[in-house]
Amino acid sequence: MYNLIKFILKYHFTILFILIEIVAISILFQHNKYQKVKFINAANFLTGSVYQAQSTVTDYFELRAINQHLATENARLQGMAEELNYIEVPTLYNDTVYVNDSLVIDTARQLHFHAAKVISNSLSKPFNTIFIDKGTKHHFYEDMGVINAEGVVGIVRSVSDNYATITPILNRNFNMNAKIKGSGYFGNLSWDGQDPNYAQLTDIPNHISPLQGDTIISSGYSQIFKEGHIIGYIHQVIKVPGKSFINLDVKLAVDFGNLNYVYGIENKIKESIDSLGFEN
């Protein structure tokens, strides 16, 4: 303790100098949005270009896996296209048309998918971050939902012109509403920072008894994700003694260890809904 005080007394000028400068910079960033954006831009540019350089090399080693992945996804999309054809045919020739959801057309128009390549990813930290090679120039924006072919990946945290960072499910700051497919019950999905294969769905009322393997999907209560994006499958039901809630261990649908391409969901009407929220 005495040594500490001696140290502070000896270097009080330098310490005070650094302290005031840190305060100055934080005031600067807080009050001058331009400098803040520039700083984030510069930081993202630096990290982005380093990761991209690394990625251009390592990509070649993964070409086989990526090909496989793209083929699978292609097949899935092909299947969806077939289904759409199947629905459209009767609408042309029959008098009676069954419409399950009148919003389908509007939904299709309001959503745009933008592909981006993952240039850096981590699994092992409590606050993992994904870097992608697309930014504002490619219609990515903050709080944008990000998925891949398998399911929900995360939410865009910050964007610069050419790069963006994503808060994946595997980040202790991540939080979203999710529900059990086929039942209306929803809970709060987060990650406990332990196993990168499993997330936790909490606050499900205990009078329902979900089964292992049931699908967990996005609830659609926020505009970030529409209803029905697959998040994962129930792995384990955990009853909390003395509480009227149960928690679920969810095996994540997305394999975060093998993430190559992701899609940002541009929601055309999100802005107008957000502005409504502010007005009220």
């Binding site: 009080h12 000028f13 005070l16 100098f17 005031i20 100055a24 807080q30 009050h31 001058n32």
Partner: peptide, 29 residues
């Protein structure tokens, strides 16, 4: 320490008048 504190006060007061909070403060300190 007095030199730094005076510089901080002066920089901040210029900042307040120019609406550039933090910039003069940083540069002057």
């Amino acid at each position: 320490w007095l030199l730094l504190i005076l510089a901080a006060c002066l920089g901040l007061s210029i900042d307040v008048f120019t609406g550039t909070l933090g910039m003069h403060l940083f540069a002057l300190v």
